Simulated scan of single mutants.
Amino acid sequence: AFKFPAGSIIVFDKGYVDYQWFAQLTHQKVSFVTRLRPKTVYQVKSSRNVLATKGIIADECIELSSAHAKKRGSPKLLRRIEFYDTDKKRTFEFLSNNFHLAASTIAAIYKDRWKIELFFKAIKQNLKLKSFLGRSRNAIQTQIWIALIAYLLVNFAKHMAQEEWSVQRLLRIIQVNLFERKLLRSLFVPDKKWRKQEEPQLRFFL
C-alpha cells in the first residue's frame, strides 16, 4: 500500500471507495478528495454558507449512516460538496475529509484530476501503454518515463511533418519503418527531395 506524508492531498475516482482506508488516511492526517457514490446514505450534521458564483451549491458536514460504512470504520464526519460545472453542464458531489480548504478549491482539485486522467488516456491510446513489463515501483516508473520521452520526441518531430498530420499518424509511420535506417525528416516530409548537404543538419535516425 502507498504511504503518503502528513499534509498530502490525494484525489481518486469514486470506484476506489474504501471506508476503512478513509479512516486510515484521516488518522495519518492525509486529505482526500473523491466523488460521492450515488445513493450513499448519510446524515447532514451542519452546513456552511456557499458562494453560488463559484458553482458551489452545498457545503455540508455529514456522517455516513449506512451499515457498511459503520462496519468498515468510516471517519465520524466527512465533508460533502455539491458543485455545478458550467463546462460540463452537470452537477457533481464530492466527498472529502478536508474541512480547511474552500469548497471551490476542493472542486478545483478534483477537476485537475480529470486533466491527469486525459493525459494518461492519451498515453494509452498513442503509445499502447496498457500493460507493464514489471510490477515493481521502479519498473513501472521506468516504463512510464520511457513512454513520456517517446511521446515528447514524436511531438517534437511533429513540427517537421506536413501540416495537419496528427501524432497518431506519425506513430503509425514510425511503426512501419521501425527497422529502417532513415532520416525522420525524409519520413515526415516525403514529397520533398533532401539534398545530401542538408542531411547532417538532422541526426535523428530510426
Rank of each mutant, 00 (worst) to 15 (best):
F2K: 10
K3D: 14
F4W: 12
P5D: 08
S8Q: 06
I9F: 03
I10V: 13
I10E: 04
F12T: 02
F12M: 04
F12G: 01
F12W: 10
K14Q: 11
K14N: 12
G15F: 10
Q20D: 13
Q20E: 09
A23P: 05
A23D: 14
H27C: 01
Q28T: 00
F32G: 01
V33C: 00
R35K: 12
R35M: 02
L36Q: 11
P38L: 07
P38R: 04
K39C: 10
K39N: 12
T40E: 09
V41K: 14
V44Q: 05
V44E: 05
S46C: 01
S46M: 02
N49R: 15
N49E: 10
N49D: 09
L51N: 13
A52P: 02
A52Q: 14
T53A: 10
T53K: 07
T53W: 00
T53H: 03
T53E: 12
K54G: 01
I57G: 04
I57F: 07
I62Q: 07
E63M: 09
E63S: 07
L64Q: 06
S65Y: 01
S66T: 09
S66L: 08
H68M: 11
A69N: 07
G73H: 08
S74T: 14
P75E: 07
K76V: 13
L77I: 01
D85S: 15
D85V: 00
D85A: 03
D87E: 15
K88H: 08
K88S: 10
R90C: 12
F92D: 05
E93I: 12
L95E: 02
S96P: 01
S96K: 00
N98Q: 11
N98K: 01
F99P: 04
L101C: 03
A103H: 06
A108T: 06
A108L: 10
K111E: 11
D112N: 11
W114C: 02
F120G: 09
K121C: 00
K121F: 02
A122C: 04
K124C: 01
N126R: 15
N126T: 11
L127T: 03
L127R: 13
K130Y: 09
F132S: 06
G134R: 05
G134T: 03
N138W: 09
A139R: 07
A139K: 06
I140F: 04
I140C: 09
Q141Y: 11
T142V: 12
T142P: 02
Q143F: 02
L148P: 01
I149P: 05
L152F: 15
F156K: 07
A157P: 00
K158F: 05
K158Y: 03
M160K: 15
Q162D: 11
Q162Y: 14
E164R: 15
E164T: 14
S166E: 02
S166C: 04
V167N: 09
R169V: 08
R169T: 13
L170R: 12
R172K: 15
R172D: 14
Q175F: 05
N177C: 10
N177A: 08
N177Q: 08
L178V: 12
F179R: 14
K182H: 10
K182P: 03
L183G: 13
L184Q: 01
L187I: 07
F188T: 04
P190H: 04
K192M: 14
K196D: 14
Q197C: 09
Q197M: 04
E198F: 10
E199Q: 14
P200K: 01
Q201I: 13
R203Y: 05
R203E: 10
R203C: 12
F204G: 07
F204R: 03
L206R: 08
